[in-house]
């Protein structure tokens, strides 16, 4: 079956996958597995669970390969599948009581002013992100968010799902996605603030 929207190398790989060629499956896993493993680790924060999610994702993908219509790149398709596999894993984990987010949110005085007025950050984000150390720092702060909020922030801001897709994946309303995402971002801003505030002179 021709899939004219895919680049030629992916089209060829897809053809080989559909013919059940062993080498093609290995190529798919080696090409995309690393990125998928990073996604699963970010979401699950546990190496074994992440490896399981990637395995689940590939097995789903192998089963669905005949139905893949080539409307997106293989990598994009596999990204969605591993996000869903990781969500399934999160869902089946024993639910720990959720830590409240309130302690991480900005504090306001009775008159509605911020308790601590915001201060500019030293470096624009795009500049800061050039450093591996900063990327790790940000990921570690995201990991400190309570799970509900961490998951929403990862799906929307890091993995780039849209509001609808996130709502569907988590089986909550789009309104709930927006409210929680906003609260998650406020909390993350508070967590990052001490690291990024301009030096006090």
């Amino acid at each position: 079956m021709a899939t004219p929207l895919l680049p030629p190398d992916e089209s060829k790989l897809l053809e080989r996958l559909r013919q059940g060629e062993d080498g093609a499956f290995e190529e798919l896993v080696r090409t995309h597995g690393g990125r998928m493993l990073s996604v699963a680790k970010r979401m699950l924060r546990n190496e074994d669970d992440a490896a399981d999610a990637v395995q689940d994702a590939f097995l789903s993908a192998f089963r669905a390969i005949d139905r893949f219509e080539g409307g997106s790149r293989l990598g994009t398709w596999l990204h969605r599948i591993v996000v869903n596999a990781a969500l399934m894993k999160l869902r089946t984990r024993r639910r720990k009581p959720e830590e409240p987010l309130d302690d991480l949110l900005p504090k306001f005085l009775d008159d509605g002013h911020l308790e601590r007025p915001a201060q500019a950050w030293r470096k624009p984000a795009d500049e800061a992100l050039a450093s591996e150390e900063t990327r790790k720092l940000v990921l570690d702060r995201i990991a400190e968010l309570p799970e509900t909020y961490r998951t929403i922030l990862l799906l929307r801001d890091v993995e780039d799902l849209d509001t609808e897709g996130t709502a569907k994946a988590l089986e909550i309303s789009t309104g709930a996605v927006k409210t929680r995402l906003h609260r998650a971002r406020l909390a993350l801003r508070e967590l990052l603030d001490p690291y990024f505030r301009a030096e006090e002179v």
Binding site: R35, V138, L153, V158, L192
Partner: peptide
């Protein structure tokens, strides 16, 4: 505050290895 909120969102978007990232981790 708005600027730093926006930076927060951008930092979140930027931590993920993008498609053009030359070196994803090996499986």
């Amino acid at each position: 505050y708005l600027d730093t909120y926006r930076e927060t969102v951008e930092l979140g978007r930027g931590v993920c290895a993008r498609d053009d990232d030359p070196l994803p981790e090996d499986v």
